[in-house]
Design a protein around this nucleic acid. Structure first.
Lengths: 175, 175
DNA sequence: ACCCTCTATGTGATTGTATAACATTGCGAG
DNA sequence: CTCGCAATGTTATACAATCACATAGAGGGT
């Protein structure tokens, strides 16, 4: 059984094989391939099970390079013949988020593929409010003013959400 | 001098007349009064209309000093005789958020009264995952690594979300 | 091979969050 | 007065997330 590698979605897609990631040009085809290959490798090494649904969801998100809502993901899973109820998508997403393959963008209630998989990191995101593109950067909020405030009152930081909203270079140019 | 005297909620409340804000003790009664007075003053000065619904929602949030979901707010509006449909709450919240009286906690899909009203600021929050308490601190994410990354790619930051999840000092003590 | 167990998936139902669309009201400016 | 605009009321619906329960597979131990 071979899945349709060329997805059946209908959204606008660049005519060539490149796209924006982190607001920069890159070869998207190899990018998708290596991302999936790396995920498979890591799962093999760590005994994680990258099942068909999980793999498909990761593939969709890597393919997009932008945030997708759970129901957009669910719609495509349905088209591909997977279960069509919300838990199908949410369980796959839970797995991918827990293991660092995917991040949740709280501001959008949506999900993006991790741009730096493998590295343990506290990610920060730049979200374009015009085109919804999402770029991932590094952050260390616990090192700055927030960390100081936390230490001062005795708050133990376990996880941080850092998301910047604004306009990406592409949309700035157009305007 | 009892700070839970007007609310009809049932959650556990300190026995004395003080409460936690920013995980620190303070006099809640004057705190609520001054917050509302300041809001009214600012609205008068800037030609903003602090209508009954909007004032009531702000009062609820200041009274609580923790994040309330839109539907919790809506329930209380209904009890007070205001409209009981979601847009009533969301429109009031939109106004309060836009004008800096209230912040949205993206991680919780909930809202808190601003702890430093008046000052133009990019707030940061500490959220206790055990008791849902929320403390507000200052942040300057655009000054650090994220700001550098944004400048490097030409992303224009307009607004930032900084939220730290962890355990507050109170819950740490209990455990 | 077998059973056992644990994980993953499928499905229906429900709750919570948020917005679209449109009617109505009330106030201020000309 | 009436026109226009901001705010509110109301219906309906879209999107996000979880609960509960049934079924299916994979792997381990015997």
């Amino acid at each position: 059984m071979i899945w349709n590698n060329m997805t059946s979605d209908t959204r606008p897609v660049p005519a060539d094989d490149s796209a924006l990631i982190g607001f920069q040009q890159h070869d998207h085809e190899t990018c998708v391939e290596t991302a999936l290959a790396n995920a498979e490798k890591r799962c093999r090494e760590e005994g994680l099970r990258l099942t068909p649904v999980r793999r498909k969801v990761l593939e969709m998100l890597v393919q997009e390079h932008r945030a997708l809502g759970a129901y957009a993901i669910l719609d495509r899973l349905r088209e591909e013949g997977f279960g069509s109820q919300p838990p199908v998508a949410y369980r796959a997403l839970d797995f991918l988020v827990e293991n660092g393959f995917v991040h949740k963008i709280e501001r959008l209630n949506a999900f993006v593929a991790c741009a730096h998989p493998g590295a343990t990191h506290s990610p920060a995101f730049m979200i374009c409010r015009k085109c919804d593109a999402v770029a991932e950067a590094q952050s260390a909020p616990a090192k700055g003013a927030l960390g100081a405030a936390a230490r001062a009152v005795g708050f133990e930081i376990e996880r941080t959400v850092v998301e910047a909203e604004g306009v990406c270079p592409d949309c700035t140019k157009k305007a």
